[in-house]
Design a protein around this nucleic acid. Structure first.
Lengths: 342, 342
DNA sequence: ATTCTCTTTGCATTCGAAGTCATTGCGGAC
DNA sequence: GTCCGCAATGACTTCGAATGCAAAGAGAAT
């Protein structure tokens, strides 16, 4: 007695070939755009493929072509609404370009090592990092010939592919907007110590404040998260010289500061204190906040990042590039005239 | 003349075997936990592997073992803060279980078809769907023997694996909380027409309102997004009989409604109108909102979803299961006593 | 020393598609 | 009718790791 044919779960190219009465190579070619196949052949094969619900096995294909069409996206998992926006935009665009996204969320720095190993094991064709990465870790990837694009970060002393948002002019406009309102006493609500984004932004802010004759009277640090702003704001406001305007390193903290001021400390914003942020995330436009902020063109940054990565996957020898988009000043209602000094 | 040896980009198990002076099988076994390998062998191999920076090729492994260790996660890309929270939690947990996440964002229903094909091509071991899926689409996956877990949704008339949050009791408490405050005129801010989550929630709400002697005086629909609440709220409030409490199908819309009421229509919340939502997302706790809502235990739901999927990947014959966690009523400051009727 | 276990190791094959190369077929030019 | 060029097709090999099976080795018991 014949053993009952094990119910093949998945049709392979051989099954399709058998059914269509052609060779496996022919089937393969029919699924490769631009291959040399006659109309008749393509028809036969496609009909058979449809009948068997055949779809090429991307894993097997990846093995032989050495192209997985997988890209790894690294994002920090901290609850900061900036990352989901970026992630979704990037994923969307990769999808349209025929790449799949392997998502890695980074909780703590220690996760990165693991994550890079996985990237390597899964033969990801490239990496977009919107998370903290050391130069050493970056080098590991480059040594392995995996192109990397850094999203909204770069290294000062080391060449990389990166997408950056330049806020020099916008920052100047923002500070001028505040000094025009009569503000001279500024409080800085910075991000974490090691964060280059925060450092960069605060550098611009300091410079612009100096330029427009303001003075930094207080500084505090947060973690970029909403919750971290409460304590930092308290510390800023209980300073000997009270700031009349608070510049936060991102919108999340600006929102936290605004809430702390309005809802806990009983201040009016912008009546007593003005608050500004950075990023231009969706939530910053909510009517309860309407933050004055500097908006990153996230959509165009995602476009640029995806293009840049896809280009390097296709032509590995392309040299490093840094693409800089320009952030724009967005006036909200979280800023206004200085209160008259008593 | 010998052709210069092309610099092997990637060390394979053969390279490691050669360097260690053992067979390829031995190398493979050294990387398989629980395989029968002597101390000496493991040492030799691991040393060689380290020297060559060898890491097993997950693609090749997947081809032969028929296990990709990839899971697909489908989420809607609409800007609703609920999805990122769920996504990050789920990803985190899969990571710890040795699975990688293939992310698929769904913009419109038409994307699903494509996405399912990709899931099939990439041999995903399983799928978690936090996005809209028809029964037919679900069947496709099951026919292909790909286990699916539906996150926060299920089918009424079709068996599936699902994680669900039961809000029956909490809804009753919430409505009682409102009627105790004197509210009798309710306005419903529903989700999209085809959304089963909205339908379910609103069913509970209707029932509870009836139970506690309230009356639904107005209804409107939104898209679950913040922006969609503005118009819907206007429509609710310009109704002949004005509601004194608005029940939104999710927190995002509740936040939108609250902002529209406070910042556009000049109402006091909860002075003039009370507002409640559903989900218990992080942003609902922001001091500007402090929504009264029904919180889903997202962390435990993610745990359950991941466990359920991993179980079915490992034992494909496990029957369907529906795990139901209980939502809890969270009292915020968006609800209060009815205004005295004039 | 011999035999018998039980563990460790290597050989050979396998997974599924892609691509190389050789062959076939077809049309047109002579 | 013969020859040439080009398109279409198939046989065979390849990618890298896992595994069934057979063989070799290590002890233990006699």
């Amino acid at each position: 007695m014949e053993p009952s044919p094990k119910p093949r779960l998945r049709a392979t190219s051989y099954d399709v070939a058998r059914l269509a009465g052609v060779s496996q190579s022919a089937v393969s070619r029919c699924f490769k755009p631009g291959a040399s196949v006659s109309e008749k052949m393509r028809d036969k094969v496609m009909r058979a493929a449809k009948e068997l619900h055949y779809q090429p096995n991307a894993i097997a294909r990846g093995l032989i072509t050495r192209r997985s069409n997988l890209v790894a996206v690294l994002v920090s998992s901290q609850m900061n609404f900036y990352y989901p926006e970026v992630l979704f935009q990037i994923t969307d665009r990769f999808s349209k370009r025929g790449f799949r996204v392997l998502l890695f969320t980074i909780n703590e720095e220690a996760d990165v090592e693991d994550c890079l190993n996985q990237v390597w094991q899964y033969q990801a064709d490239g990496v977009i990092s919107a998370s903290y990465l050391t130069i050493e870790q970056h080098k590991i990837l480059e040594d392995r010939n995996i192109p990397v694009v850094m999203f909204n970060r770069y290294f000062d002393d080391y060449d990389t592919n990166s997408i950056w948002c330049d806020s020099v002019a916008a920052t100047d406009v923002m500070i001028k907007h505040l000094t025009d309102f009569g503000h001279t006493q500024f409080g800085l609500l910075q991000g974490p110590e090691h964060s280059m984004v925060s450092a960069q932004r605060m550098k611009l802010v300091r410079h612009a404040i100096e330029n427009h004759g303001g003075r930094i009277v207080a500084q505090a640090r947060g973690t970029y998260r909403y919750e971290s702003a409460a304590g930092a704001t308290q510390s800023l406001m209980t300073n000997a010289a009270q700031p009349t305007a608070i510049i936060a390193a991102n919108d999340m903290m600006a929102m936290g500061a605004l809430d702390e001021l309005r809802n806990v400390m009983g201040c009016s914003v912008p009546g007593d204190v003005s608050v500004v942020g950075y990023d231009g995330i969706g939530a910053a436009r909510f009517a309860s906040y309407e933050l004055t902020t500097i908006r990153q063109p996230i959509g165009r940054m995602a476009d640029a990042a995806v293009s840049m990565l896809v280009d390097r996957v296709e032509k590995p020898d392309l040299s490093h590039e840094r693409r800089v988009l320009i952030g724009s000043f967005i006036q909200g209602t979280s800023t206004g005239p200085t209160p008259i000094q008593t």
